[in-house]
Design a protein around this nucleic acid. Structure first.
Length: 859
RNA sequence: GCCCGGAUGGCGGAAUUGGUAGACGCAGCGGAUUCAAAAUCCGCCGAGGUAACACUCUUGUCGGUUCGAGUCCGACUCCGGGUACCA
């Protein structure tokens, strides 16, 4: 009787793998490669359970592919620039770099204790000057190639702290530190012209066969291709230069129902009117206090302001529509102006009811001609409806026919044009922050914007900065900011904006192929290792990070940093769910959250606070977060139970794409499984491995279980259903523990089953598997053992049980030969006692036989 | 608001993609072992119903298609992710 000791085994095998260089990936054209990558972590401080789950899953894939003979690349690095480091700098008076590198050291140590099959020799952080120097080189090449532009963009401005705020830092329209109402402010910003590539990025989604459908759909909708009509309303009494208000609409068929024109508070006409009308200025200022977040804008109460200006309806110059400024119209989308059709759009209807504007019905369902009342009637595009056509009278058409007719009409008369439009906007990357990659340009009074010559890269962040006042320290750092113009030599200033951290994460996967190269990428390494074969990460990145990476690879190909054929970086994508936990708060103490270690569960099921004995209310199971204190530190779990237990728990029970609830009972269960498997070896006789001449029924049954498990576990891993693989491993373990009969055939079957169990467990609980392999007398390390193959002959049996339904309800079952004909099965079914009882001698109305599946007798 | 998901026993989930609903695990209950407890092992375990069968109900709600629906269609409810400066 021995006991598995994780505390000794885990460091021992980690050292053994290290010594053997098991995970150091080297280019080897003679072997097929497999690049598996988990989204790299932000070094926030310590690893959390989400990381454990993400990296446990990736490690299963990496180790499984390794056992299948692939040359696996499985690297790790750090997404190390970002806002939290600056917040920490302000709070703790540390340097963002110090804070970041300390966090990396902690998290590296923690990740290493998990025993992941990572090639640590490729590690880098995006804040390493060696990394961002290459990113600056990419920027310069992309700037030259025309992928980057300078343009106006809006930001959240805190008028008290005099600083730009991230959307996250705006709470209920106020700055998180100052509490002052934020204002939208326009600035010159750098942007990647991703919208130029909208159509390519949309079309290429079709080729992403191994991405989740939901992600492909979200990306498609985000790019948002639409067809519609572009035209302009002619204004009356508007300030000079504002004779036209351009609009884009996807429903030109509702133009006959227009009752107002709405413009964004940021529209040029609104700005012109602000100058001369204090009422309009006040309204626009109020709108700007909503900040820049689309969700906030859309959810805010819809408000408008009548400018007093009118426009002519394009179908009838005598028909005048009022121009309103409305808080829900975004300047960034379309032209920043719309026409409102209350009868056929709910938002417009609410707006018109509120401001007493007319509602004009233009569409009716074929069977219903009552005018629009509480709910707008949206004409369906593919069904026939009645359409009140301004010129031809009442018509019957589908919505699409009405749209097409209107576009054709507008084009014939020359007042409008059918166009394609995309929702996707350009990617603004300027951040008014220190802890990011400096944008390598210089502003010169005479030469304008001048790129920093590549020979001067990197533009390094200065270390001597302070965070004692709000705003970007680079703006205050004159010694860093003042440089001679690279072109004319006269006094100039550096760009003080840094890049969005999404830029850092848009190409790190390519850098992992050659992390030390003197250029951003090395073509021999890229040719061998790229693409990423399997990418794994949270679904929260389904749109932005993935879309930016897809764009970046194309821009890198166009600037010769990736092969010309490169486009998509990730062949297969898997999006995992979150790790959740119960929440606890004390009855009678509002908003006081307790950590899991502060509560105690009594035998009667009640829960109390350990320190006070006060009753505790168990709250909803939600994502682990510091604010709700429902976090469990992976390091403590690893110390107590070992990494393998934590990994096993993360992989069992919940399907990987769904949220998993962390429970103490679940961890105990995982630990119990390891002990059970360990003790299997204590009392099973295994023989010497010689194949006997024949197998008894018992030995054959065990072998069927083993080979069924091999198929099930393998299918589970290939299909990202680790929970199903785990269930199959449990079944195999259960059968092995029952198989105690003596005999050389049983010895053989047990040895075969245990070896398969060990190898198949090894991607999930690698340290435990090594220890078990040693006890089984396996050659070398299990990390180098080949994945078992299922014997097809052992996966099928001669007889099968078929369920019998009567009128669709299962009533009985029959045992039939696997090869039985439909007629035989039907005869057997009709002879069944339950069937004849119901039929009482009558003939059945119908008998449906699905061979291998089911029999349904319709009585 | 808009886009995308999800909902199955006390709990996490499985169901060969339209064919035996509840695999496997957790919790619970009963038993063995123990001076006792822990650990371990064996058995039971959706609800109603029965002495036991039979039978009835059951996959968030309501309706539909089908010999047959957790799975397909339509209408909802609730929960979660994203919403362009959190990463």
């Amino acid at each position: 009787m021995s006991r598995y000791n994780a505390r000794e085994a885990e460091p021992k095998w980690q050292a053994a793998w290290d010594k053997a260089g098991s995970f150091t990936a080297e280019r080897d054209p003679s072997r097929p490669k497999y690049y598996v990558l988990e989204m790299f972590p932000y070094p926030s401080g310590r690893i959390h359970m989400g990381h454990v789950r993400n990296y446990a899953m990736g490690d299963v894939i990496a180790r499984y592919k390794r056992a299948r003979g692939f040359n696996v690349l499985h690297p790790m690095g750090w997404d190390a620039f970002g806002m939290p480091a600056e917040n920490a700098a302000m709070a703790n008076k540390t340097h963002p770099g110090t804070w970041t590198y300390e966090n990396i050291a902690t998290m590296r140590r923690q990740l290493k204790s998990m025993g992941l099959s990572l090639d640590w020799s490729r590690e880098f952080a995006t804040c390493d000057p060696e990394y961002y120097a290459q990113q600056q080189a990419l920027f310069l090449d992309m700037l030259e190639a025309g992928f980057i532009a300078r343009r106006k963009a809006v930001v959240n401005w805190d008028p008290v702290d005099m600083t730009v705020l991230a959307n996250e830092q705006v709470i209920d329209g106020k700055g998180w530190r100052s509490g002052a109402p934020v204002e939208r402010q326009e600035r010159q910003q750098w942007a990647f012209k991703i919208s130029d590539m909208a159509d390519e990025l949309l079309r290429a989604i079709d080729g992403l066969k191994d991405w989740p459908d939901k992600v492909r759909l979200m990306q498609s909708n985000w790019i948002g291709k639409s067809r519609g009509l572009q035209f302009a309303f002619k204004t009356h009494d508007a300030p000079a230069d504002h004779g036209d208000i351009a609009v884009y609409t996807t429903r030109p068929d509702t133009l006959m129902g227009a009752s107002f024109v709405g413009i964004s508070p940021d529209h040029p006409l609104a700005k012109a009117l602000e100058a001369e009308n204090p009422g309009i200025a006040a309204f626009c200022a109020e709108c700007r206090r909503l900040g820049t977040s689309e969700a906030d804008l859309e959810k805010a109460e819809k408000k408008g302001f009548d400018t007093g200006i009118t426009v002519s309806h394009p179908l009838d110059p005598e028909w005048k529509l009022p121009v309103w400024i409305a808080n829900f119209i975004l300047m960034d989308y379309g032209t920043g102006a719309i026409f409102g059709c209350p009868a056929h759009d709910q938002r417009d209807l609410d707006f018109c009811r509120k401001y007493d504007l007319p509602v004009i019905d233009t569409f009716f369902a074929l069977d219903n001609d009552t005018p629009v009342a509480a709910e707008a009637y949206v004409p369906p595009k593919t069904e026939k409806v009645r359409w009140v056509n301004h010129f031809t009278g009442i018509d019957t058409a589908t919505g699409q026919e009405a749209i097409d007719a209107t576009v054709t009409f507008a084009e014939e008369r020359g007042w409008g044009k059918g166009v394609e439009n995309y929702r996707l906007r350009d990617w603004g990357i300027s951040r008014q922050r220190y802890w990011g990659c400096p944008i390598p340009v210089v502003h010169c009074a005479t030469c304008g914007v001048v790129p920093v010559p590549k020979s001067d890269l990197p533009v390094k962040l200065p270390d001597d900065v302070t965070f004692d006042q709000p705003g970007n320290p680079l703006d205050r750092h004159d010694a860093w900011r003042q440089v001679p113009c690279p072109k004319c030599g006269s006094a100039a200033r550096r760009e003080t904006d840094t890049m969005d951290t999404f830029v850092d994460s848009s190409w790190y996967f390519a850098r992992f192929c050659s992390p030390k190269a003197e250029t951003p990428t090395d073509s021999a390494d890229i040719d061998y290792w790229m693409n990423v074969d399997q990418y794994i990460g949270g679904v929260e990145h389904a749109i932005l990070h993935l879309l930016y990476s897809r764009f970046f690879c194309r821009a890198m190909a166009a600037t010769q940093h990736l092969p010309p054929s490169a486009g998509e970086p990730f062949n297969a994508l898997f999006t995992q769910g979150m790790v959740t936990h119960e929440t606890y708060n004390v009855v009678g103490r509002n908003n006081v959250w307790l950590a899991p270690e502060e509560i105690e569960r009594r035998h009667d099921g009640s829960v109390i606070e350990k320190s006070s004995g006060d009753p505790v209310r168990v709250g909803p199971v939600i994502k682990m977060s510091k604010s709700k204190r429902n976090v469990v530190d992976p390091e403590e779990i690893i110390e107590q139970y070992g990494a393998d237990t934590a990994r096993w728990f993360m992989l069992s029970d919940s399907p990987p794409e769904r949220d998993v609830e962390w429970t103490t009972a679940g961890v105990e269960g995982a630990w119990r499984l390891l002990r059970q498997v360990w003790s299997l070896l204590d009392d099973l006789s295994l023989g010497d491995g010689t194949m006997p001449d024949s197998f008894s029924d018992g030995a054959t049954a065990l072998r069927r279980t083993t080979h069924g498990a091999i198929k099930g576990v393998t299918d589970g891993i290939e299909g990202f259903s680790f929970n199903k693989s785990v269930a199959k491993l449990y079944e195999l373990k259960n059968e092995l523990s029952k198989a105690k009969a003596a005999g050389t055939d049983m010895d053989y079957a047990r040895r075969e089953g245990l070896r398969a169990l060990c190898i198949m467990m090894s991607p999930m609980v690698p340290h435990f598997a090594e220890e078990m392999w040693e006890r089984l007398g396996g050659e070398g390390m299990v990390i180098d053992a080949a994945w078992p193959e299922a014997d097809p002959a052992l996966l099928i049996s001669d007889q099968i049980t078929l369920p019998i339904q009567i009128n669709g309800k299962r009533r009985s079952e029959i045992l039939v030969e696997r090869e039985a004909t439909k007629e035989d099965i039907e005869a057997a079914a009709l002879a069944d006692a339950a069937v004849s009882r119901v039929l009482e001698g009558r003939a059945p109305k119908k008998v449906i036989v699905v061979p291998g599946r089911i029999v349904n007798v319709v009585a």
